[in-house]
Simulated assay, not measured.
Amino acid sequence: MTTWILLRGLTRESGHWGAFAETLRARLADARVLTLDLPGAGGLHRLRSPADIEATTQHCRQQLAALAVEPPFHLLAMSLGAMAAADWAVRWPGELAGCVLINTSLRPFNPWYQRLRPANYAALLGLAFVPQASRPREQTILRLTSRHLDAQTGAAVVDAWTALRDARPVSRANALRQLLAAMRYRAPARAPAVPLLVLASRRDALVDARCSQRLARQWHADFVEHPSAGHDLALDDGPWLADQVARWSQRKGMS
């Protein structure tokens, strides 16, 4: 049985995968799918988030060891989580059978204005520094990360996300430490010795899709771009994402 580990992004937690984890389980019928929280988020929201990606990666490895999940396993990770996955592949390639990186950006491959689109700086600063109730915050995050949802579906997602935030809030300090970790992380020019699939959303409002394109070229990774989804690809088109993962895994002989 293959094992897939799912990692989310900045201030997000395992609950934000929504229906996608089950969609992936159904598409990879013989696989075990597990979701991990990054330190400082989800079930670990009371922990202090590391200010560097390397410590975040190490914490994830320790979680799996505590769960007796033995390598090699596959990683599927978004955004900040994909930075941890990339670091994992670089430093412990023997633990990974494959790695899917979604809508991420790594220094030194792209300029700052592609890694985080300037048009959203004001909204992001508001999320970081302006006190807001949970629901308006989640409405802003949905607006920044989704391109596909209609009003009714979007309202249901905001309801679910608001409940997650109220139950397991990520502190402002932890959010800023996660952002600092993302800004500081620098990937090596040489590709890790792990099979890689890089996925991007063409209409990502946060991270320019050219970041994923450049990473795929630099690391000689397989690359696929969704033509219309936003940053949260698992939310906007989970079936497409699961299908891409399954096709790639079969092509590489992983499943």
Rank of each mutant, 00 (worst) to 15 (best):
T153I: 10
P39G: 11
S105M: 01
A200Y: 00
P111G: 01
G94M: 05
V33K: 05
A119W: 12
F109N: 09
Q58C: 04
S249R: 14
A68M: 06
G126K: 12
G94A: 11
R190C: 07
L36N: 05
R186D: 08
Y113W: 15
M183S: 12
S228C: 13
R251F: 11
D37H: 03
A85I: 00
Q114N: 07
W17F: 07
D208C: 07
M83A: 10
R210D: 11
W240Q: 02
E225D: 07
D150V: 04
P131A: 13
R217S: 13
A122Q: 14
L179R: 10
P169T: 05
A29W: 12
D236Y: 07
V198C: 08
E70V: 04
D159A: 01
L28W: 13
Y113G: 08
A119H: 10
G230M: 04
L34P: 11
T162I: 00
D208P: 01
T145D: 02
A26L: 15
P118F: 12
H148P: 02
H220Q: 14
A97P: 07
L28K: 09
A66I: 12
D87E: 14
L179A: 15
A221I: 03
S228W: 13
L44I: 03
A122Y: 14
Q218A: 14
D222L: 11
S212M: 04
S14Q: 10
R168V: 02
R184G: 06
A31C: 15
C99Q: 00
L67Q: 10
A97K: 08
A182D: 08
L241F: 03
W4F: 14
A26T: 15
V158C: 04
L144Y: 01
Q132G: 14
A123G: 01
H220R: 14
L75M: 01
G43T: 04
W161E: 05
A85V: 03
M1I: 02
C99S: 01
A187F: 10
D150S: 10
P239C: 01
L96A: 08
R8T: 07
A26D: 15
R32P: 08
